[in-house]
């Protein structure tokens, strides 16, 4: 157990494992995502209320889902950084934060475009959209702080503190935004909450969520590998690896 833990912290070990798994992650991710989206776009039946505009759900929900769970993953990594000082954990946070920002932006963008045919405006101060907007700010803050601190070690730990403070706040923010929303505009038409979604709708949705997760895994591995190379460029194993041409 402890040996495994120790190994997990070793960038060299991770580099090897990631290199081995990445082709599988990429292939299965692309396959599932393509299948899910094609199914959702062409074969799933139209929604009886929203017509075909609901087909945005197949990218809106996966990006929103991933953006939120990535922040939670970052928080777990932040705890590991602060408590065990594991190098890989802060590599993960640094590598993943920009991806989270992009996914959050995507879910906001798709939500706004979806809102146009559904609500008649591009932007509604709906509880979910607003929470996602705040999540975008949180990601932005994490990236800005990371960029602002030159020293790598302090940057990692400062960012870890910020991520943890953010994750404590997320439930409070969600709760208060929901409350604020009911205060200002009671019972609007929710984008993604359906009384019951037929199987032909939720199976492709599930597929695209899974596919995007796998693609994110690939992307995270790749970006972590890059970050590891930058940090460990003076070490023996990087030299052996690069000279052997197995980057």
């Amino acid at each position: 157990m402890w040996q495994f833990f120790h190994k997990l912290g070793s960038p060299k070990w991770f580099y090897g494992i990631a290199t081995r798994f990445m082709p599988w992650l990429l292939a299965s991710g692309l396959l599932l995502l393509a299948g899910g989206l094609a199914w959702g776009l062409a074969f799933a039946p139209a929604d009886y209320l929203q017509g075909n505009s609901y087909r945005i759900i197949f990218i809106h929900v996966p990006t929103a889902f991933l953006a939120q769970s990535m922040y939670i993953m970052m928080a777990v990594a932040a705890v590991v950084t602060l408590v065990w000082r594991m190098k890989l954990a802060d590599v993960f946070v640094k590598a993943v934060a920009p991806v989270g920002l992009v996914f959050t932006f995507l879910s906001l963008f798709t939500g706004a475009v979806w809102g146009k045919p559904t609500w008649g405006t591009w932007w509604v101060w709906d509880a979910r959209l607003t929470s996602m907007l705040i999540l975008l700010f949180l990601y932005g803050g994490v990236i800005a702080l990371d960029r602002a601190i030159n020293d790598e070690k302090s940057a990692a730990r400062a960012v870890a503190v910020l991520v943890l403070v953010g994750v404590v706040n997320i439930p409070i923010i969600k709760y208060s935004v929901n409350w604020w929303n009911t205060l200002h505009q009671p019972a609007t038409f929710k984008l993604t909450e359906k009384p019951s979604m037929p199987v032909e709708m939720w199976v492709p949705l599930l597929l695209s969520v899974l596919g995007l997760y796998l693609l994110f895994g690939w992307l995270a591995c790749l970006r972590m590998k890059t970050e590891i190379l930058v940090r460990e460029q003076k070490t023996r194993w990087v030299k052996d690896l690069v000279m052997a041409g197995r980057g």
């Binding site: 989206l37 075909n52 505009s53 945005i56 995507l106 979806w114 992307l219």
Partner: peptide, 24 residues
């Protein structure tokens, strides 16, 4: 055309593909 919802759906998918592929 997607019964008139085409521009919305396709612009979403386009931005999604551009950003995800671009990031990769």
């Amino acid at each position: 055309a997607m019964e008139g919802h085409g521009p919305y759906v396709w612009s979403c998918y386009a931005v999604f593909f551009i950003l995800v592929a671009g990031m990769m």
